[in-house]
Amino acid sequence: MLDLLKGPIYSFQEFMLLMGRAFRNLFRRPHYPDDLWMQMDIIGVGSLPIVMLIGFFSGAIMALQMARALNQYGATSQVGPIVAITLVREMGPVLTALLVAGRNASGIASELGSMKVTEQIDAMRALGTDPIQKLVKPRLLAMCIVLPLLTIIADFIGLVGGYLISCPLLHLTTTSQYWSSAWRALEYNDIAQGLLKPFAFAIVIALVGCFYGLQTTGGTQGVGRATTRAVVVASVWVFVLTFFIGKLFVRL
């Protein structure tokens, strides 16, 4: 039993050490702004179309599925607040994070993993540069900057999707009522957790990707394994974290 736990606990310890080193290096020279820009472009601009698409459909689906239930109680005018609250609090951050985890945790893990198995990480160290500074830091920072921004965009596009279903299509409510009720429904509490979540997810996604990439052993097959693990672990952590952060904000 103890032996079974040894592996995961050891991994967790290594992960925490990597996290510690990454954060300690955040404010230390050298900084590599070019790498940061490149990562922001890859993660942010690269994920934008898919994040917008998924954001749109999640808002639209929410409105569509809620239509009948709300109709039953004669509360169709509440569709705006429902879409707004579910999107901002939960769906926007989690769906965006899952997409980015699938796209970029895998990308980071496979890139760093390939570098590891072809000894380019060692070459980097031998040439007097720190892989944490050169590879991990730009990815971590870029993720922390762009994931909240992507989430905000997904939330907004989702509201538009919900609007298109509920007003022009199903005539559940009027345009002005949809937008004003949606806007009024959001409290600071919602916005705060809606923005804290993507920030926490960003740290996890970037570091999990880097961690499994840098731990890669065993040639090209190892790269595949590292990539799969990074996506699975990052996704699981997104759900675990969203539960605990949600719990933190729920006060009845």
């Binding site: 020279r29 590599y32 380019q120 060692d122 070459a123 007097g128 720190d130």
Partner: peptide
């Protein structure tokens, strides 16, 4: 250091590879 197979960064050009230590050392 010269590595066994050259140890070049495969996604960087020759120029970027040679410039790497000049641009990236602390």
């Amino acid at each position: 250091v010269l590595f066994q197979e050259g140890g070049l960064f495969d996604s960087l050009t020759v120029e970027e590879n040679v410039a790497y230590p000049l641009l990236n050392q602390r």
